[in-house]
Design a protein around this nucleic acid. Structure first.
Lengths: 339, 339
DNA sequence: TCGCACAATGTAAGCGTTTCCATCACCGGA
DNA sequence: TCCGGTGATGGAAACGCTTACATTGTGCGA
């Protein structure tokens, strides 16, 4: 009964509210935007009128007038296949969606896989259709990132974009430290031939985790025990096969993603060795996958929910014109059954 | 050089283009919208001016003038936990994102988990901020669906929303037939004690797959061999445990989701039985998970890419004011190692 | 020769907001 | 009593675009 006194078909506009409240639209607008410079009486009159008319602000008109879109892009730059297979992505998306919804901002999903898509995305963002960009995965010297930077759209990246460290606000975890923790855990277990499956070297996870691995091993580091994958399960399985062939005495492996760890485990088993008895395994991410493996995977947990909500927070600071400092979030070693 | 003759700071508008081309903005607008009633010379002049000025249309202004948002909501109605864990969801999202991008429509992600979110979503959509809604998962008699229907926003659902079959356009698979195929496969393998783990009965998959299961078994159907899960892995494991306790002689099980199948397999193993030797398993979905299980899961593949692109297609028809008929897509039995 | 149909174009009125500016009533201090 | 200041308000311009309508110019049949 308070709702929808919407007599006809037309959606009520600010004029309808103004008429109902007996004030001008200027006053209604002021109430809508914080209510400063409005008398208490006028304010309550307007608020009642809003109720009775069932008024709801028109975003497009508002955006046109203010130059603000009130929306943010969640931008995926990655081959489709890789991206949507990554169990990490729904976690980030979910966190971002929640954080944005709380602040009444709209999340626009943008996928920049093919060159054509990238071009469209660059235009779309450059045209100012969104207030800012949450950049999800970015390889080194990504031209799309450069065009974003050039267009001056507020942007927050997830994971330090190589080659742009200084120019962009990021939210990341301590890659080196996390890798050291994982490696240390394996060493503390008494493992002496510890191998690593890294990520692509043009991604921060691919670049820095192996650094931590090497640092922690110190003199014990053997470059022959490092193989590269692309975070996918298959690449982990393949890398493990190469590792095993080259160094059959491996007794532990640290993989830069849970999926690669899963692949590695399969390969280890296929080679007739047991996990964790013969080969201990530590993954990275603690995506949903980790706990479901058999045995459940020991892994470094990335706080995805916090990562994405922090990204949103920083981005909105930027959008408001304030400055925002890049954040580094802690990871946590989750010990399960594989190491 | 063709780009960005953007002398100053301001973004070029349609007037700048008009000035550069030596025509009125009306003409520019006509070129932008299909170019009818425009002479070839004027058209090329405008097109060149667009290039030289680096003009890009302002969506908000356009939407305000036309009353069209040019965007579509991808609406998730489900508990967060369930939803983002579901490996099925990225597949749908990806398909929808691609199909929409091709048509230059924007995808807005909406999550309606908590009551508050649902209220906001209802308002948002009701206010006409999007042209249509892709409804992802809907339980029976969902009040949110009802409010969508009431507000008259074009909506296409994925999977027949129980209780609203007649009122809404849907894209779904033949649940009953698919379940029959899966069941038949198990029977053809010579299995005689075939159990089923169903989904929640207020979802189409929960309701209809068990119907197909029963139909195919005919006289052999035993209600004691049916347990319910919520599509999650854990629920599958639990259901399997109940099943095994009640009927230790089970030699096959059909699960209404791959995740439940995964859980069931774990339980079967934990009970000291082998898959597929002692208990054959068929899943449903063919999400990324299926192929990575050990042994790889035999399952009914849902064509998620096609489902989502069809949803987009139908939705846009509806948005254009045309009618659209609900579609039913075929599934496919993917035989792997578990049955 | 005139006028008419019609293609091409310019013009201007919106679309629903925000926001700047002018106005006004009112109050306290001189 | 008058005046400057201040809080509250209305009015109107602006945001960038679409589109109905008016206007122009052309070629054609009568």
């Amino acid at each position: 009964m308070t709702q929808m006194t919407n007599t006809g078909r037309r959606k009520p506009t600010i004029r309808d509210v103004a008429a109902a409240a007996g004030v001008s639209r200027g006053t209604v607008s002021r109430v809508l935007n914080g209510g400063h410079w409005v008398s208490p009486e006028a304010r309550t009159a307007v608020e009642q009128a809003i109720q009775s008319t069932g008024y709801y602000a028109n975003h497009h008109a508002r955006s046109l007038a203010t130059g603000r879109a009130n929306s943010v892009a969640f931008l995926l730059t990655e081959e489709h296949q890789l991206l949507f297979d990554d169990p990490t992505f729904p976690l980030l998306l979910r966190g971002a969606a929640e954080a944005l919804a709380q602040r009444h901002k709209t999340l626009v999903l943008l996928v920049a896989g093919t060159p054509e898509e990238r071009e469209n995305v660059a235009q779309f963002v450059g045209a100012g259709h969104v207030d800012g960009v949450l950049l999800i995965s970015s390889h080194e010297r990504d031209p799309l990132l450069e065009s974003l930077l050039a267009s001056g759209v507020p942007t927050v990246a997830c994971g330090i974009p190589l080659g742009h460290q200084a120019e962009i606000t990021t939210v990341s975890v301590d890659e080196v430290g996390s890798a050291r923790t994982a490696t240390r855990h394996l060493m503390d277990l008494g493992r002496t031939r510890v191998a690593m499956i890294t990520g692509p070297p043009d991604t921060p996870g691919g670049r820095f985790r192996v650094v931590g691995f090497r640092e922690e091993l110190g003199d014990g580091f053997d470059p022959a025990l490092v193989e590269e994958g692309d975070y996918s399960r298959q690449s982990g399985a393949d890398a493990m096969a190469r590792l095993l062939e080259r160094a059959p005495d491996i007794d532990a492996v640290f993989a830069a993603s849970d999926r690669m760890a899963a692949g590695a485990i399969a390969t280890v088993r296929a080679a007739g060795r047991a996990v964790p008895q013969d080969v201990a395994v530590v993954g990275f991410d603690d995506s949903g996958l980790a706990a479901t493996l058999d045995p459940p995977l020991t892994t470094m947990r990335q706080p995805f929910g916090e990562i994405s909500s922090t990204m949103v927070e920083l981005l909105l600071e930027l959008v408001e014109g304030r400055s925002a400092e890049s954040a580094t979030l802690p990871t946590e070693l989750i010990v399960r059954g594989t190491a």
